[in-house]
């Protein structure tokens, strides 16, 4: 096994370990972790299977194998960024609704308090 393989496999194992820790501590929700787990799985696959990249490049008709890596990863990153924008938009909407509900409730509550004070 080549040195670079050992390094990437070690890095991958550490990465998986870190993701698991984040999930266990409740700092990362499982639905967002899926993407990261799949990424590490792919990296792991190519760490063990050294010729894999060449084979994949030949199948897809890419001349330089590293270009396949760049294309694949940039595409994956773009999709994930889009997903994060969707998540942010949803959070934005939920946040707006919550702020509106809270302010309306507060207004009603203060009015109620003031009305109950008067008879005293």
């Amino acid at each position: 096994m080549a040195k670079i393989q050992i390094i990437t496999i070690a890095a991958n194992v550490l990465f998986v370990f870190y993701i698991s820790r984040l999930i266990i501590k409740g700092r990362l929700r499982e639905e967002y972790a899926i993407v990261w787990v799949i990424c590490t799985a792919v990296l792991m696959l190519f760490s063990f299977w050294r010729n894999g990249l060449e084979v994949m490049a030949r199948i897809t008709g890419v001349y330089e194998a590293p270009n396949l890596v760049f294309t694949g990863f940039i595409f994956a990153i773009l999709i994930y960024l889009l997903h994060l924008s969707v998540v942010a938009s949803k959070l934005h909407n939920d946040n707006k609704k919550l702020a509106q509900e809270i302010s309306l409730l507060k207004e009603r509550f203060e009015k109620h308090l003031n009305n109950n004070k008067k008879p005293l």
Partner: peptide, 10 residues
């Protein structure tokens, strides 16, 4: 007037 204070800027 009745006043509603939003907790964050919407």
């Amino acid at each position: 007037a009745a006043v509603i204070n939003l907790p964050v800027n919407l």
